[in-house]
Amino acid sequence: MHVERTELPGIGLRQVITTADGRQVGVVTHLAGGRRDLLYDDPGDPDRMWSLALTRAEALTLAGLLGLLDVVDLPGEVAS
């Protein structure tokens, strides 16, 4: 699967994938504070992306829900 990576100067890194059904979903990882913005496309407007700001703890919890924590052991981190 291809991950489109875009450096956002002064902000962080944007990473987006396109799903099998053509939808786009991704994350902006901010340089400061551990904040992540979950991105997802608007099916009614292909030029629009929606975002949802997540704290580091929320991002880890979401990763756990998606099964990532079943694969990667993060020492000292617990998603609950």
Rank of each mutant, 00 (worst) to 15 (best):
M1L: 11
V3D: 04
E4R: 05
E4K: 03
R5H: 15
T6A: 09
E7A: 14
L8I: 09
P9R: 06
P9E: 11
P9H: 05
P9T: 10
G12K: 05
L13T: 15
L13I: 15
L13Y: 05
R14M: 13
V16S: 06
V16W: 04
V16N: 05
I17D: 04
T18F: 00
T18A: 00
A20D: 15
G22Y: 04
R23P: 08
R23S: 14
R23N: 10
R23W: 07
Q24I: 08
Q24M: 06
V25E: 09
V25L: 06
V25K: 04
G26Y: 01
V27Y: 09
V27L: 12
V28C: 01
T29F: 03
T29C: 08
H30D: 08
G33V: 03
G33T: 05
G34T: 08
R35D: 15
R35F: 07
D37H: 08
L38R: 07
L38H: 04
L38D: 01
L39A: 03
L39T: 02
Y40D: 05
Y40F: 09
D41R: 02
D41Y: 00
D42P: 00
D42N: 06
D42I: 02
P43R: 06
P43S: 06
D45A: 09
D45H: 06
P46I: 01
P46Y: 00
D47I: 02
R48L: 14
R48V: 13
R48W: 08
R48H: 11
M49P: 00
W50E: 10
S51P: 04
L52C: 12
L52H: 09
A53F: 01
L54I: 01
L54E: 02
T55Q: 01
T55H: 01
R56W: 08
R56K: 10
E58P: 01
E58L: 00
E58K: 02
T61D: 14
T61A: 12
A63G: 11
G64E: 02
G64R: 01
G64V: 00
L65H: 13
L65T: 13
L65I: 12
L66N: 10
G67L: 05
G67M: 09
L68A: 15
L68W: 13
L68P: 09
L69I: 10
D70T: 14
V71I: 15
D73C: 11
D73G: 07
P75H: 02
P75E: 07
E77C: 10
E77Q: 12
V78T: 14
